[in-house]
Simulated scan of single mutants.
Amino acid sequence: MTVNVLFAGRDAQWPIYEPTLRTAFANAGVVADLRMEFAPGEVDYIVYAPSGKLSDLTPYTRCKAVLGLWAGVEQIITNPTLTQPYTRMVDQGLTEGMVEWVAGHVLRYHLDMDMDICRTDREWQVHIPPLARNRTVGVLGLGELGSVCAQALAGLNFNVQGWSRSAKSIAGVACHFGEVGLRDVLAQAEILVLLLPKTAATENVLNADTVALLPKGSRILNPGRGPLIDDEALLTALGTGQVGHATLDVFREEPLPRNHPYWAHPNVTVTPHIASETRPDTASEVIAENIRRSEAGEPLLHLVDKARGY
């Protein structure tokens, strides 16, 4: 039986994803008619990118599931026309990319690489950082991405303190939860990594009060979601030295406006939302597997809980 799959992304994404999706469908044994246009009542599945044109899902009455290409869900999950099951993108390529970005920047901070390689005074000054076992890294968010990043950092011998809204158990990681747990992690985190989803409960999790709990001079990495940080509070903390440096990959408004203070701040590194890009080949495999599972009556992978928002 042929299933009709609508690709609801940007026009520029179509020539990139069409061949990888067709290959993935063939490998998964899914017979699919894949197009960018269908009559809404003919669509069985929607491959969805928030950057595309589709916003009203009401006419897609036959659609069995909407399959997201992004890890983030905040731009779709509150859409009142989304009545179909929604799956977010969790794939090995995306996960590996995030681990590499986080590990690279944690090591950059841990080894003070900016100081070592950016000297212009030609002075020979030896700087010996502590060993990783003597450096505490806090990871806020222990979902799919947070947990693997925390494990990777633990594998590098860092003292990793993780926090999530509910109790978790991860080998090699000291796991905390709840309000008391958050305060405990922040009080220890010399380097803090933010990998929480954006929900009403996590917005501004890093604010004036919580930033004040960090050890003075702590460094911050945010590859998660821009609204996790109260920007004014962070700028103030950078000005006082409470926060030594911040590397930010995500922002409330993207692209980051040209007049934003982050651009010119000497203790802020801006990266253009590259911490973990969706890889078309591996993402297509996840999409194909989920359609195969749905057609076989098996549960969907990475199904989003609309009530929780992730």
Rank of each mutant, 00 (worst) to 15 (best):
E42Y: 08
F158D: 03
A24V: 11
V270Q: 12
G146C: 08
W101R: 07
Q242K: 15
V243F: 14
A212K: 14
R308D: 06
W124D: 04
S169Y: 10
G138N: 13
V205D: 02
D114P: 03
Y310G: 09
E295N: 08
P255I: 06
Q84H: 10
G72K: 05
F158N: 03
A167G: 07
D184H: 11
T78K: 15
A174D: 08
E285N: 13
L145Q: 08
E190R: 14
V30D: 11
G297M: 03
V137R: 13
P50H: 02
M36D: 07
S166G: 11
G146P: 06
H302K: 08
N157Q: 15
A152D: 05
T278D: 00
I117W: 11
R122Y: 09
M36H: 10
V139I: 09
V193K: 13
D249I: 11
L195Q: 12
S294Y: 02
Y60H: 05
S164L: 05
I229Y: 14
A264D: 15
Q151A: 08
D33T: 10
L256N: 09
G138M: 11
V304E: 10
V102N: 06
I46L: 05
L131F: 15
P227E: 13
A201M: 06
G226R: 14
L69K: 01
V243I: 15
N222V: 03
V137Y: 03
E42T: 10
R135C: 12
T278R: 00
V106Y: 12
A8I: 04
W124R: 07
R62L: 05
G155P: 04
Q188V: 01
V148S: 09
G41C: 03
A208W: 05
G217N: 09
G239L: 11
L234K: 14
R108G: 02
E100V: 05
D114R: 14
F251T: 13
H110R: 14
I46Q: 00
S276F: 10
D44A: 01
T95S: 15
H265G: 04
G241C: 14
L214E: 09
Y310N: 09
V137I: 03
R279V: 12
L34H: 07
N27V: 07
G93S: 04
A283W: 00
S147W: 06
F158I: 00
V102S: 04
L238K: 01
L300W: 14
L234F: 10
Q75E: 12
Q151R: 13
N222K: 06
Y86Q: 07
L186P: 01
